[in-house]
């Protein structure tokens, strides 16, 4: 077993939107080099967990704590969390009219370099890096000059998330329903991209409704979430068991 400090440590996390409590005590530890999957039916708090970790407005943490690389994550602004190495691949990537992909990516890369005391990236180097990752993920060239996500197909949007992941090389990538709305070819391409980005010092948290993505991104641990809690954890076979029995039965076993 891994003896390092965990990359991410979630302790008894409770979070609410307005009066409604969504997360009701989540505990989770992720170590470098691991791939975790969180599965569960709609409305159990999977995406809420992702948003709370990324620091989206509108969610109130009512109890618990989250340590990222030993630091208190919940005290940081969304961009600080990103600069610390937390990346969220959005379920619904937003369109940003007027802001081109290149300007956007350059700003993100430079922000990261500045955070680590480095000079801004040189235009030539940036372009080389951009092309390299673009080819690796299989993102069409024409997208480069477009506004962020504007007019992208569903598959292109998801691929663009993975492309950004490749560009920014975070320590922890949370993939929120990255498989939804993808056909099998696109799914395979996205998964290949992710697999190529796996390193001993980084980790992935894959949030998904279906088992099929996990055929391509094989997790070390699978957690089942139900009603705002992780109700069961296991290895990758748990996903298969889930597929077979369904959420309801598994949830009942653990009730």
């Amino acid at each position: 077993m891994n003896k390092q400090t965990p990359l991410l440590e979630i302790k008894d996390l409770h979070a609410a939107i307005g009066d409604k409590e969504i997360l009701k005590g989540v505990d989770l530890r992720i170590f470098p080099g691991e791939v975790h999957a969180i599965m569960g039916p709609n409305g159990t708090g999977k995406s809420t967990l992702a948003y709370v970790l990324a620091g989206r407005e509108g969610y109130e943490v009512t109890r618990g704590e989250v340590l990222f690389n030993g630091k208190n994550l919940l005290e940081m602004s969304p961009d600080e969390r990103a600069l610390e190495g937390l990346f969220l691949s959005f379920q619904y990537p937003v369109e940003i009219p007027g802001v081109s992909m290149t300007n956007f990516m350059k700003a993100a890369i430079d922000a990261k370099r500045k955070y680590h005391g480095q000079e801004p990236i040189k235009p030539g180097e940036f372009l080389r890096l951009y092309r390299e990752k673009q080819d690796m993920i299989g993102l069409p060239e024409r997208i480069r000059n477009r506004a962020v996500n504007e007019g992208f197909s569903g598959g292109e949007k998801k691929r663009n998330e993975i492309f950004q992941l490749a560009m920014l090389e975070p320590l922890l990538a949370i993939l929120d329903e990255t498989d939804s709305g993808l056909d099998i070819d696109a799914l395979r391409a996205v998964a290949e991209g992710v697999n190529r980005l796996r390193r001993p010092d980084n980790a992935f948290l894959v949030i998904t409704h279906y088992q099929r993505l996990l055929n391509h991104i094989v997790p070390d641990y699978v957690h089942i979430m139900h009603d705002g809690r992780i109700v069961r954890s296991g290895d990758k076979d748990l996903a298969l068991e889930l597929e077979e029995k369904g959420y309801r039965q598994l949830a009942r076993q653990n009730a």
Binding site: A54, G55, R56, E57, S77, P78, D79, R81, A82, L83, F87, L88, F90, P93, V94, E95, I96, P97, G98, V99, S100, N103, F104, A107, A108, A111, K112, Y115, A147, V148, Q164, L168
Partner: peptide
């Protein structure tokens, strides 16, 4: 969109400017 950009490490101020410039 602001949140999206912040999630990529861009500060709120810079993200806001990028968006206004883009607009």
């Amino acid at each position: 969109a602001l949140f999206y950009m912040q999630q990529r490490g861009i500060s709120h101020k810079a993200a806001r400017r990028l968006m206004l410039y883009g607009f």
